[in-house]
Measured scan of single mutants.
Amino acid sequence: EGLCAVCGDNAACQHYGVRTCEGCKGFFKRTVQKNAKYVCLANKNCPVDKRRRNRCQYCRFQKCLAVGMVKEVVRTD
């Protein structure tokens, strides 16, 4: 048992190249599959942790990419 590289929640295994929780795994997968574009309403440096991970989708997705999650391994079929 480890911690999610994105939000610090409990994470049992790796998803898309990085140890993440189920919440961040699902968020990343949905974002890539929908080709979603998010906008940060602040300064693009919002805190992303277990308690606040749902407040800014833009910053959460940027953190997913920054920690090494790989868009190309998300299935789109």
Rank of each mutant, 00 (worst) to 15 (best):
G2S: 09
G2F: 03
L3R: 15
A5R: 10
G8E: 15
G8S: 15
D9G: 13
D9N: 07
C13L: 13
C13E: 12
C13Q: 15
C13I: 04
Q14H: 06
Q14P: 11
H15T: 12
H15P: 14
H15N: 11
H15F: 15
H15W: 12
Y16H: 15
Y16M: 15
Y16K: 05
Y16W: 03
G17L: 07
G17M: 09
G17K: 03
G17Q: 13
V18P: 07
R19C: 12
R19P: 12
R19G: 09
R19Y: 07
R19A: 12
T20E: 02
C21Q: 12
E22P: 11
E22A: 09
E22R: 07
G23C: 13
G23I: 12
G23Q: 05
G23L: 10
K25F: 10
K25P: 01
K25L: 13
G26V: 05
G26Q: 06
F27M: 01
F27Q: 00
F27V: 00
F27Y: 00
F27H: 01
F28K: 00
F28R: 01
K29D: 14
K29W: 04
K29T: 09
K29Y: 03
K29V: 10
R30M: 06
T31I: 11
T31R: 07
V32I: 04
V32W: 01
V32C: 09
K34A: 01
K34C: 10
A36G: 08
A36V: 10
K37H: 07
K37R: 08
K37P: 11
V39P: 14
V39K: 15
V39R: 09
C40W: 01
L41D: 15
L41K: 06
L41H: 09
L41M: 12
L41P: 15
L41A: 10
A42V: 08
A42K: 15
A42L: 07
A42I: 05
A42S: 13
N43I: 04
N43P: 05
N43A: 15
K44G: 09
K44F: 01
K44R: 10
N45I: 09
C46R: 00
C46E: 00
P47Q: 15
P47I: 12
V48A: 02
V48C: 06
V48L: 06
D49W: 05
D49F: 05
D49Y: 06
D49M: 07
K50D: 05
K50P: 15
K50L: 06
K50F: 09
K50S: 11
K50E: 14
R51C: 05
R52K: 12
R52C: 09
R52Y: 15
N54D: 14
N54E: 04
R55L: 12
R55C: 10
R55Y: 12
R55F: 10
C56Q: 01
C56W: 00
Q57S: 13
Q57D: 11
Y58M: 06
Y58V: 01
Y58C: 06
C59F: 00
C59M: 00
C59S: 00
R60G: 01
R60A: 10
F61K: 07
F61G: 00
F61R: 00
F61Y: 11
Q62L: 06
Q62I: 04
Q62Y: 01
Q62T: 14
Q62M: 13
Q62A: 08
Q62S: 12
K63S: 03
K63C: 03
K63L: 03
K63N: 02
C64Y: 02
C64V: 00
L65A: 06
L65K: 15
L65N: 14
L65M: 04
L65S: 03
A66G: 11
A66L: 11
V67G: 04
V67E: 11
V67M: 10
V67Y: 15
G68C: 02
G68L: 01
G68N: 07
M69T: 01
M69R: 01
M69V: 04
M69E: 02
V70E: 13
V70S: 09
V70F: 08
K71I: 05
K71S: 14
E72W: 04
E72M: 08
E72L: 02
E72N: 12
E72D: 14
V73H: 12
V74S: 08
V74L: 09
R75P: 11
R75Q: 13
R75D: 06
R75L: 12
R75N: 11
R75C: 13
R75H: 03
T76E: 14
T76F: 08
T76N: 15
D77L: 08
D77F: 04
D77S: 07
D77C: 09
D77H: 04
